[in-house]
Design a binder for these strands. Structure first.
Length: 345
DNA sequence: CCAGACGTTGTT
DNA sequence: GTCTGG
DNA sequence: CCAGACGTTGTT
DNA sequence: GTCTGG
């Protein structure tokens, strides 16, 4: 989960963090990052953290400067002497963070960061097929994902790395996968996550932080998810179409067919919109967060993107009734698993 | 007691 | 660095 | 997800 | 049969 994401905006645009109200002063190693639609582990990406947390992990609060820094995806702990490529540290499970032991114990209190993305990819397992989907904010703002970072001295060089925190998938997303990255959708939740003055030691972890890593539940920021081209699965490929619904491409082709043939059973939902709305949510008027979109394109889509396998059958239904959840009792706090905590702002 | 793991996901 | 497994 | 283990002691 | 490791 969360093993791929997109961040293809001009650097100036990224610095503004559209969708949030943050003051990011500078960007270290800016040149080491190349905006891309297809960002995979072990490549460089920007993260946002507080300046003071850099070395030693001194507690920092919201008064500290916030900076952006290009780091390598896949956390290499500070005690590593070599870069162990067999260690999977692309993600950090929220459950293990909360427990406090293990590898994350020394980082969770002082090395927290957020990762700006336009959206992330997830592969829906459908029979034998793996169908890539893209999840993003409906309003086009960036998504800030909760992360941890560290620095290690490898061969005399300081290597900065990060990992993305994952949690259980929200019931609206469980049809796609059972895990999701922790999405910090409001400025205040981001500030809370980055403020390490509240957790100065490795052994303290506040209830608020535990709440922040719960499954996504912000009704004020809707997310959408749709299928995208298979080609995104190939590491190293790039196309603007990777963050666009494949539906838009099919339309063109189908339009031709439709002249001759009528389309009958067409349930083809490429664009499932998933708000985190339960049954009813009143008149929801999203406050259009500030400007937030376009970038500069120059990328030419692969010339030959033929419609991939699964053209049809997609199952959005579960948006309302999660597959694997059949309990009626409200979840009660269980030591290791989720505590049904909602909301945060 | 010391060597070895320490992590997550699930083909892409 | 610290915990775990053998 | 499937293959393979599934146990305990700890002398040196 | 069920848990664990890869």
């Amino acid at each position: 989960m969360c093993g791929r994401f997109a961040l293809r905006l001009g650097r100036d645009r990224i610095r503004q963090v559209p969708g949030y109200n943050l003051d990011v002063d500078e960007w270290e190693n800016e040149d080491e990052f190349v905006p891309r639609y297809n960002i995979a582990p072990r490549t460089q990406a920007p993260v946002i953290r507080h300046r003071g947390a850099a070395d030693g992990g001194e507690p920092t609060d919201s008064s500290d400067k916030m900076i952006m820094q290009t780091m390598k995806w896949g956390l290499v702990p500070h005690w590593s002497k070599v870069e162990d490529k067999t260690l999977s540290t692309t993600n950090a499970r929220a459950e293990n963070l909360v427990e406090g032991g293990g590898m994350w114990g020394s980082l969770r209190g002082s090395k927290r960061c957020v990762i700006p993305v336009q959206g992330y990819y997830e592969w829906l397992t459908k029979g034998k097929q793996k169908l890539p989907h893209f999840t993003k904010r409906k309003d086009g703002g960036l998504m800030l994902l909760a992360g941890l970072y560290d620095s290690a001295v490898i061969d005399g060089r300081t290597l900065w790395t990060f990992t993305i925190v994952t949690t259980s998938a929200n019931s609206s997303f469980s049809w796609l996968h059972d895990r999701q990255p922790v999405i910090l959708s409001s400025t205040s939740s981001v500030l809370a996550w980055l403020d390490t003055s509240t957790t100065p030691t490795n052994t303290s972890w506040t209830k608020q932080l535990t709440q922040l890593v719960q499954p996504y539940s912000d009704k004020n920021v809707e997310l959408e998810c749709y299928q995208v081209p298979q080609e995104v699965g190939r590491v190293g490929t790039e196309s603007e179409t990777f963050i666009q619904p494949i539906k838009s491409r099919k339309d063109g082709i189908q339009a031709m067919f439709m002249k001759q043939k009528e389309v009958k059973r067409k349930r083809e939902e490429d664009t499932e919109v998933i708000g985190v709305k339960d049954e009813d949510d009143g008149p929801s008027k999203r406050a259009k967060t500030e400007d937030a979109d376009v970038e500069e394109h120059d990328e030419k889509p692969p010339k030959k993107l033929k419609a991939e396998g699964s053209s049809s059958g997609f199952k959005p239904s579960s948006s309302s009734q999660p597959p694997s959840q059949s309990q009626e009792r409200k979840p009660k706090p269980s030591p290791t698993k989720e505590k049904g905590i909602p909301e945060t702002t």
